[in-house]
Amino acid sequence: MSVLVYTESDNGNLKKIAFEVASYAKAVADQLGTSVTAITINTSNASELGNYGVDKVLNVSNTQLDTFNANAYASAIKAAAEKEEAKVVIVSSSADSKYLAPLLAVQLNAGFASNVVEAPSSTSPFTVKRTAFTNKAFNMTTINTDVKLVAVSNNSFGLVASNGNATVEEFSVSVPELGVTVESVDKASDKVSIADAEIVVSAGRGLKGPENWGMVEELAEVLGAATACSKPVSDLGWRPHSEHVGQTGKPVASNLYIAIGISGAIQHLAGINASKVKVVINTDPEAPFFKAADYGVVGDAFEVVPTLIEKLKTFKAQQ
């Protein structure tokens, strides 16, 4: 009757969010007085999950699953849930997990709560806190089915180390008809994605034109950050759509969000509010973003950003 957690990997190595969902699973298992089983797919370092409270790993090694397929991955997780007789199944909020989770909910006939930001406030009834209205509010939700599915918001729970040991067992599954097959993948391997980033550097219409993004990219590079932009910037074609963040774009839940030349419209703020620390750089002291930020610089981005880059380089050199 353990808690089952799906821990994702990339090229055989566990992602950071895998350790976060494992930490979350451990918290739930402690509340229920049970253990944590993780399921991994084609993962070489699965035993590291022991450091985050996982007791046992079921690792699926199957070349048919080298490429992500929502149906096939959901079936594998379902098989593991059945084997473990899991009553609570936990996944992350990566694009892949968000893709497979509703399919898994149907397969398990499980009530599903997504965007969950805290450990359950009660396990009977099973009650979790999730974001709603795109970060403008939280919603306490009970899941009333026998098997429960929880998707944890990225970067909401954090990593909680525990000194345990995970045993790794091979777990074989049958692969269903795929239905959807991947033809090509277009992924910049040297760039940090907004979903995975701990720091996001974002810029808006205040930068005047796409030719001025060099300093944004340089700042991101110094910080190891992902780059993002406001909606008009992507609508104008200055930056790709994949960088559009906000209520109607990608959600951001980073540790640090730096907004350059962004006014802070309600739709923008809703999507980035889950970030822990927000810094705004804007010429206009009345810009609404100053009300939502932790730190602010009233100044011209074309002066402030290059200076910030220099200062950060000096700081990094001293570290």
Partner: peptide
């Protein structure tokens, strides 16, 4: 229905922004 909404909460109000002078990026 498999889930039920119990209650809503609004995020805690934010403290005031700390302003840093543009000449003092350090």
């Amino acid at each position: 229905t498999e889930t039920a909404s119990v209650k809503f909460e609004k995020p805690a109000p934010k403290g005031a922004v700390k302003l840093v002078d543009a000449d003092n990026i350090d």
